[in-house]
């Protein structure tokens, strides 16, 4: 998981690249790292283009991240979901909880659009 801050717009937005698989073995790592990332910014984008597989505990972890972001008055948005990962979000209804974007730059841009409204 690589995390960096995008400061191109007025707001700093955190971008985390998720890679490989998120399952019962490593979902706690994600939860822990997410708490640290929240200290830099409460607006975070998960770039899922490198994410190959996710199971229900991984999904649980991502939903948990969303809850934390909302509690910190920010948001968690997803980008670049592959067809397989997207299928899991679809059948578990998790798709309805998240705003999803085709790539990370459009996800980052969406935060500033919202800010200007």
């Amino acid at each position: 998981m690589i995390f960096h801050l995008d400061t191109s717009s007025e707001k700093a937005i955190g971008i985390a690249e998720l890679q490989g698989r998120i399952d019962a073995n490593n979902c706690n790592d994600l939860k822990k790292s997410f708490s640290q990332w929240l200290q830099y910014s409460s607006n975070i984008v998960f770039d899922c283009s490198g994410l190959e597989f996710i199971d229900s505990s991984g999904l649980g972890a991502i939903v948990d991240c969303l809850r934390k972001a909302l509690e910190a008055h920010g948001d968690l948005r997803l980008s670049g979901l592959g067809p397989k990962v997207s299928l899991i979000f679809e059948i578990t209804k998790a798709k309805k909880l998240f705003s999803m974007y085709p790539d990370s730059s459009s996800a980052v841009a969406s935060f500033s659009l919202l800010g200007s409204v």
Partner: peptide
């Protein structure tokens, strides 16, 4: 529609 398929490794889902 897309023809994509996914093998679930998670018995809670499918």
């Amino acid at each position: 529609e897309s023809g994509y398929s996914l093998t679930m490794e998670d018995p809670h889902l499918l």
